[in-house]
Amino acid sequence: MSADFTSTTAPHSQAPGTEAQAMPGGNAIVFDNVSMTFPDGTEGLKDVDLAIAPGEFVSIVGPSGCGKSTLLKVASGLVTHTGGKVWVDRDQLGYTFQDATLLPWRKVQDNVELLMELRGFPPAERARIAREKIDLVGLTGFENHYPQRLSGGMKMRVSLARSLALNPAVFMFDEPFGALDEITRERLNDEVIDLYQREQFTGIFVTHSIPEAVYMSSKVVVMSARPGRIQEVFDVPFAYPRRPEMRYQADFSELCGEVSLSLRRAIEG
């Protein structure tokens, strides 16, 4: 996978667009003193420093409204930050939103083909890759269903398959399973871990569930209340593949407790 690292900065300090530049420290994503102030004066992010190594799976937890989504939007280029620098390979980017964001007028197959279509893949290749990814998320047989007829968990799987089709180097998840019931959520946690190990992407996973964050990731980042900054980073020592039994181990609960305390401090300021 060829890395095409680009950095973007605030419009006033540099021409808009991208600039090839050496990546600091061999990381996949670097936030260097990044701030984001919205036009209405809201400070979404302030002086965020964060480095994510290639192949890491980082979860981000923080009080609601602290700027977690903004962090992903800045990293992906959906919004441009107003201070500092971001390094990231945006060429093959996976992104899932809180809801599955499927096009309701397209069948599952055509939804999974969408991003490839926008990238100009030839139809035959598109169809082949889509079938492969649909199979990967366990939805073979549902290719011709419209999203309306699928359950919440199945819609989310379609959304994952759609992103996987681009073979993402970096995969961003913005509270993807927040709206699902716990059983579906835990199953999808395992499926995402499987996909992560199989496809070898770098993951950033925003969630408001601490056990989910600890279970999924190699690092948990706690953000402070608005304006969002990095409060604390926890290394998760457990090896992949993670197994559901892990949720009931003492050291797992202990780490969850530590993250929870840190989050509490973040909310209290």
């Binding site: 992906s76 280029g77 959906l78 980017l93 992104y95 939103f97 809801d99 964001t101 096009l103 969408l114 991003l115 926008l118 990238r119």
Partner: peptide
């Protein structure tokens, strides 16, 4: 139209 659908298109440079 759903804002995130637009974001999806924007991410692919549509």
């Amino acid at each position: 139209v759903d804002k995130n659908i637009l974001n999806l298109f924007k991410l692919q440079g549509a």
